Computed example of a mutant assay.
Amino acid sequence: MIRRITIAFICTLLLQTAVAQVKNKTLLFIGSFTGGKPDTGIYVYELNTSTGKLTHRSTVEKITNPSYLTVSPNGRFLYACTDTKLPHNGSITAFSIDSINGKLSFINKQSSGGENPVYITVHKNNRFVAAGNYTGGSVVVLTANSDGSINPFSQLIQFSDSGINKVRQEKAHIHSTVFSPGNDFLFLPDLGADKIRVFRFNAKHVKPLTAFTNYFVTTTPGSGPRHFTFHPNGKFAYCIEELGGTVAAYRYRNGKLDSIQRIFSYSKKLEAYTSADIHISPDGLFLYASNRGTEENTISIFSIDQTNGKLALVGHQKTDGDHPRNFCIDPTGNFLLVANQFTGNVVVFKRDAFTGLLTKTGTELNIPGASCLQIRTYKTR
């Protein structure tokens, strides 16, 4: 009996030791504009999710304008919109991720099929990559192989609508490509046409996109829908409207969006608005939106009614930089990080889980042309 107890005790100690040795490593991937020429463009840092400190791990050089990034659902690969904001078709570049050392290795590169790809996402099965060409006004789908490499695009859908703002909405401008919670629909906010386009996504087909009945939602004229996100409960969806300086809330079910609210995001009225990014805290209690402009440069903070999905303004936080193009919330919900493109700095804020409010941590990076932040936590030993 004593021997059995001793063996059980030793086994318990070994198990506890093994568990203790499993650590979470959170990597921050930063994309940037490089002035339209090959240069250092992607930066990898490790985030301490207790203190908010950032430690440099690696960079990717000789890359042109990797302005938007995404990490595959399995965490093994990073895909970047590259050759953006140039007078020719952009590209999609694939990298493998060494989560132990925080290093990226180039795999391959393919054309995006249109000018200025600005957003990219990966299907949950890791086999499809969907990107939106902003200047080109199209959506493109590429298939991905098991090694992360991507094939020439298998499907491209061109749009030709326009909006009432003759300067910004002269033609279609797809600004994001977002999968539904079940990954069976793809949502495409079109800033140029004041529409959120919706397509069925059939992962059994090489050309997975098919038109959905009444496959778009018409937004307020001149609003310019930009980025889009779903609530963790899958019942609500939210769109940041760049030209309107507003956030639109929707009830979601089986590919359909029903409008429930439209709320102002800026801290004050301006002649023109350039809202940018939108994210929801992991607990689903707060929504954050970035508002650009020299007179603004804030993150707006909203509480979310868990019953009806409506938003209530909590406050605004200055981003300590110019042009907060993109931001992210770490998986623990402890920190919110902002990329200020024009001042080239990434600022880390501590997030209060109870109030949703933000406070500066003192951690800040100098990243020229910082334009996109993606974050992923890995389990390591």
Rank of each mutant, 00 (worst) to 15 (best):
Q261V: 12
Q341V: 15
L357N: 10
Y266D: 01
V348Q: 03
Y250S: 06
N254D: 15
N254M: 12
R351A: 12
L337C: 02
T274E: 11
G224T: 12
T213R: 15
F216A: 04
G244I: 03
G255V: 08
D283V: 09
I301D: 01
R325L: 13
L270F: 03
G222W: 09
G321Y: 07
S300F: 04
K318S: 14
D330S: 04
T355F: 07
F302M: 06
D305N: 15
F286P: 06
T220A: 14
L313V: 11
A248E: 11
Q317Y: 00
L287S: 09
P225Y: 08
T246E: 12
T246W: 07
H227S: 06
K268P: 00
Y215G: 15
T274I: 13
I260V: 15
Y273K: 02
S281I: 13
R325S: 11
A339V: 05
N214D: 15
R292H: 04
L257W: 08
R253M: 12
A248Q: 08
A339L: 10
H316M: 03
H227C: 05
E242M: 09
L243S: 04
I329A: 00
P324L: 14
E296V: 10
T343N: 07
H227G: 01
D320R: 08
N308P: 04
I278Y: 11
D352E: 14
P232T: 11
Q261T: 09
T332G: 04
R226K: 10
D258C: 01
T298D: 02
I260N: 05
A272Y: 01
Q306K: 15
L270S: 04
T307A: 10
N214C: 06
F302E: 04
R292S: 11
L243R: 09
F230M: 04
S281P: 10
A272I: 00
D277E: 15
I263E: 08
R226L: 12
I304L: 03
V247H: 08
V247N: 10
K318F: 07
K268Q: 11
F286E: 01
T307F: 05
G344E: 02
F264T: 04
F286Q: 07
F216I: 00
N345I: 06
G333V: 00
I260L: 10
A237L: 07
G333C: 07
Y266S: 03
F264H: 11
V346I: 13
S303K: 14
T294S: 13
Q317R: 12
I260K: 05
P232Q: 09
F342D: 15
F236W: 10
T294K: 14
K268T: 01
F327V: 02
L311S: 03
G245L: 10
T274W: 14
Y288T: 05
Q261L: 12
S281W: 08
T213G: 13
Q261D: 14
G234T: 03
T355E: 07
F216Q: 05
T219R: 03
P221Q: 05
A289E: 13
L270Y: 04
H316P: 07
T246L: 12
N233L: 09
D322E: 15
